[in-house]
Amino acid sequence: MTTIKDIAKLAGVSVATVSRVINDDPGVKEKSRDKVLQTIRETNYVPNTVGRNLRKSKSDMILVMLPTLSNPFYAKILKGIEERASELGYGVLVSVTHHEVKTEKKYLKMLEMKQVDGVITLFSTLSTEELNNLATKYPFVQGCEYTEGAQLPYVMIDNKKAAYEATKYFISHGHQRIGMISGSFYESSERGREQGYRDAILDAGLIFDKKYIVKSNYKPESGMEMCRALLSFSEPPTAILTVSDTLAIGAIKYLKSIGVAAGKEVEIIGFDNASITRVYDPTISTVSQPRYDLGRVSVDLVVEKINDIKVVNKGIILPHELILRESTHEDDE
């Protein structure tokens, strides 16, 4: 039976270093950590401190990885995750990757060390190949942001359909020049929403001009700047779709600064139905995502994989809703 001394000898490090790696001490040099983890994998060694009772042990914990804590969008998803996990007998660990590959990989080592039984990620920086390799060995689920081509379970809304419906609403109210404030980070959802916007315009027999799609960084200030850019065109848009509510807030704030009435002179639709959209002035029309349900379903998917890693991967699409408020014509509420 392999011991911690055997691991130390094979990896060419001290027993103390092996112990520190097992306990996820951040002070261990990356090169030494990688040697120890590789040796552990090759020898199938399971540390007593985290493995418990050989390899069949469970931690009864689920790791949830967020890209940031600054986005209120994730709050209801986390609530759904925590409540459903508790119902099924699991605890939840929440980590923040700050959009960094190195940080994401650091947390994923908890799977190897059996400190968690599965992972739910709400945004991953890993490549499709890396995700596929990971998902063949460990329970791994993507929520909201699915990586195209990844062979793993996921739950999300139909971003293309949602943006199509929002754009179609504008067109049905006579708008022929429609702008879009998109992003440059959440590739999967952004691509789907841009495609839905474009398809709605083309299906209506209007001219699609890619210059009306501008990119942002999701901060309200960026929404202001992108709205300013759109309205500087010789033929500015009379309606704007944004890929997040924070961008919609920024766009409306810019309109106010130049004396243009949002909802009357320029219509605005955001995305996500954040709580502030109901109390902002004007209240903001938005595409609502079932965030609480996204969280609950993601737990069901990862627990299914925990129970049987070979179970067929499921891709679940939840319904969205277009909610009309004052940032579109008030008489449509």
Score class of each variant (00 low, 15 high):
Gly89Pro: 01
Glu100Lys: 15
Glu87His: 01
Tyr107Gln: 10
Tyr74Gln: 01
Arg55Gln: 08
Arg84Ser: 08
Val21Ala: 07
Leu54Asp: 09
Ala85Met: 11
Pro67Met: 03
Val101Ser: 04
Gly27Ser: 13
Tyr74His: 07
Pro26Thr: 12
Ile40Gln: 04
Thr121Glu: 04
Ser59Asp: 09
Leu37Glu: 10
Glu42Val: 01
Asp24Val: 07
Val15Asn: 00
Asn48Glu: 12
Ser14Asp: 12
Ala75His: 05
Ser70Gly: 09
Asn23Gly: 02
Phe140Ser: 09
Ser32Glu: 03
Leu54Ala: 11
Tyr107Pro: 05
Thr17Ser: 13
Glu87Gln: 11
Gly89Phe: 00
Lys137Leu: 12
Thr39Ala: 14
Thr43Asn: 06
Lys114Pro: 04
Val101Leu: 06
Leu108Phe: 02
Glu42Met: 11
Val36Gln: 08
Ser95Val: 13
Thr49Gly: 02
Gly89Gln: 00
Val96His: 11
Pro67Lys: 11
Lys31Cys: 07
Arg41Leu: 12
Met113Val: 04
Asn44His: 14
Met61Gln: 06
Glu82Asn: 13
Gln38Thr: 14
Ala75Lys: 05
Thr121Tyr: 07
Val116Gly: 14
Gln115Pro: 00
Tyr45Ile: 01
Lys79Tyr: 10
Val96Trp: 05
Gly91Ser: 14
Gly80Asp: 15
Thr68Ala: 12
Glu82Ile: 10
Met113Cys: 02
Leu134Cys: 05
Glu83Cys: 03
Ile120Ser: 01
Pro139Trp: 06
Pro47Lys: 06
Val96Cys: 14
Pro26Glu: 08
Thr121Pro: 04
Val119Trp: 10
Thr68Tyr: 02
Met61His: 10
Asp117Cys: 00
Lys29Ile: 09
Thr17Pro: 06
Glu30Gln: 15
Ser57Lys: 14
Met65Trp: 00
Met65Pro: 07
Ser57His: 14
Glu112Met: 15
Arg20Ser: 00
Tyr138Val: 03
Thr49Glu: 08
Lys76Glu: 15
Leu131Thr: 02
Lys58Gly: 09
Thr125Ser: 15
Thr128Arg: 13
Val116Arg: 12
Tyr138Gln: 03
Val92Thr: 10
Leu54Tyr: 07
Thr136Ile: 08
Thr125Gly: 07
Arg84Phe: 02
Val13Leu: 12
Glu87Ile: 09
Thr125Asn: 15
Lys79Cys: 07
Asn71Ala: 11
Pro139Gly: 03
Leu54His: 09
Ala85His: 14
Lys79Asn: 14
Phe140Lys: 08
Glu83Pro: 03
Met65Val: 13
Val36Asn: 05
His98Arg: 11
Val13Gly: 09
Val96Thr: 08
Val28Lys: 02
Arg84Tyr: 05
Met65Gly: 04
Thr125Ile: 03
Glu30Ala: 11
Thr136Ala: 10
Leu88Ser: 08
Val119Gln: 09
Ile120His: 05
Asp117Ile: 05
Glu100Phe: 03
Pro67Gly: 06
Gly80Asn: 13
Tyr107Met: 12
Ser86Ala: 15
Glu100Met: 13
Ile120Trp: 11
Thr103Asn: 09
Lys106Glu: 09
Leu111Gln: 02
Arg33Ala: 10
Ser14Thr: 13
Gly51Val: 10
Arg52Thr: 08
Ala75Cys: 08
Leu108Ile: 00
Glu30Phe: 09
Thr17Trp: 06
Lys114Cys: 03
Asn71Arg: 08
Ala11Cys: 10
Gly12Leu: 04
Thr39Lys: 12
Leu37Asn: 06
Asn23Glu: 06
Glu129Tyr: 00
Leu66Tyr: 13
Thr125Leu: 00
Arg33Trp: 06
Val13Phe: 14
Asn48Tyr: 13
